[in-house]
Amino acid sequence: MSNLSVVGDRDSWRCWLCDEPVDPDASVNSDRGPSVDLGAVAKPKKGAATLERLAHRACNTRKGAVKAVVPWSPDLFVVDPAPIAETVERLRRKGGREVVARCPSRADADQAAAWLVDRLSRFAPDLAVATQVEPGGGQFLLALRTA
C-alpha cells in the first residue's frame, strides 16, 4: 500500500468519486479527510489489478464494497446519461465506441463532451478516450471512443 501523500500528490488531492478537493491537512477521521480507496480495476485477459485512489473518507465509506457511482455534473444539459463507471468498465474490456448521452443542442453536447473528457482524465487516467458529437433524431448524441 502506498503512502497517503504519494497517492494524494498523484491524484492532485481530488476525490476520485465526487471530484471535489481533499484537504491533505484534514484528519483522516474527518468525513472530508483523506482516504485511500483500494479498488480493483479489471485488466483485459489478466485478471484484476489494484489501483489506489484518493477519496474523502465519507465518499470511500459510502461506496463500501460496491461499484462506484460517478455522477454527471448537474450543470450539464444531458438526457439519458449512461452510468460513467459501468461505461468505463465496458470500454476497458471491449474498447470501441459507446453512446453516453443525448443533448438538445450542439453547444450542450460540446460542453458535456469537454466535461466528460476532463472528468475521465481523473476517474480513469489509464483509459485514453475521445468524444464524438453527432446529430441524430433532432438531438445530438455524445459518444466515447477508445483511442
Score class of each variant (00 low, 15 high):
Asn60Val: 03
Pro83Ser: 10
Ser27Cys: 04
Glu98Met: 12
Arg32His: 11
Ser35Asp: 13
Pro74Tyr: 04
Gly33Ser: 06
Ala65Pro: 01
Val22Asn: 02
Trp72Ile: 01
Ala55Cys: 14
Val69Cys: 05
Gly33His: 01
Gly96Cys: 06
Asp25Arg: 12
Pro21Thr: 12
Cys18Met: 01
Leu38Ile: 09
Val28Ala: 11
Thr50Ala: 14
Thr61Asp: 04
Lys67Tyr: 07
Gly64Thr: 04
Pro44Asp: 07
Leu76Glu: 05
Lys67Asp: 15
Gly47Gln: 05
Ala49Tyr: 09
Glu20Ala: 15
Thr50Gly: 09
Ala40Pro: 08
Cys15Asn: 03
Asp19Arg: 13
Val22Gln: 04
Arg92Cys: 03
Val28Asp: 10
Pro74Thr: 13
Ser73Leu: 08
Pro71Leu: 09
Val79Gly: 06
Lys94Ala: 14
Gly64Glu: 02
Lys67Gln: 14
Pro83Val: 07
Lys94His: 14
Val88Gln: 00
Lys43Asp: 12
Leu51Thr: 08
Asp19His: 13
Cys59Lys: 03
Leu76Gln: 04
Val69Phe: 14
Asp80Phe: 06
Ala58Asn: 05
Val66Glu: 13
Asp23Phe: 02
Ala48His: 15
Cys18Glu: 02
Arg92Asn: 06
Val79Thr: 10
Val22Trp: 10
Arg93Thr: 09
Ala55Asp: 07
Gly95Met: 02
Asn60Gly: 04
Pro24Cys: 08
Val79Pro: 00
Cys15Val: 01
Asn60Ala: 07
Arg97His: 05
Ala85Lys: 01
Leu51Asn: 04
Val66His: 13
Arg53Pro: 00
Gly96His: 03
Glu52His: 14
Ala49Thr: 15
Leu17Pro: 04
Arg32Gln: 11
Glu98Pro: 02
Gly95Phe: 00
Pro83Lys: 09
Asp75Tyr: 08
Ser73Trp: 01
Thr61Gln: 10
Val66Asn: 12
Thr61Ala: 13
Ile84Leu: 13
Val22Ser: 02
Gly33Gln: 02
Glu52Gly: 11
Ala68Gly: 09
Arg62Asp: 12
Pro71Ala: 10
Leu76Thr: 03
Asp75Thr: 13
His56Ile: 09
Pro81Tyr: 03
Val22Gly: 02
Gly39Ile: 04
Ala42Gly: 11
Thr50Trp: 11
Gly64Lys: 04
Asp25Glu: 15
Leu51Ala: 11
Ala55Ile: 02
Ala65Asn: 14
Ile84Val: 15
Asp25Ser: 13
Pro74Ala: 11
Gly96Ile: 00
Glu52Phe: 07
Asp19Val: 01
Ser35His: 12
Glu98Gly: 03
Glu52Val: 08
Val88Glu: 00
Thr61Tyr: 00
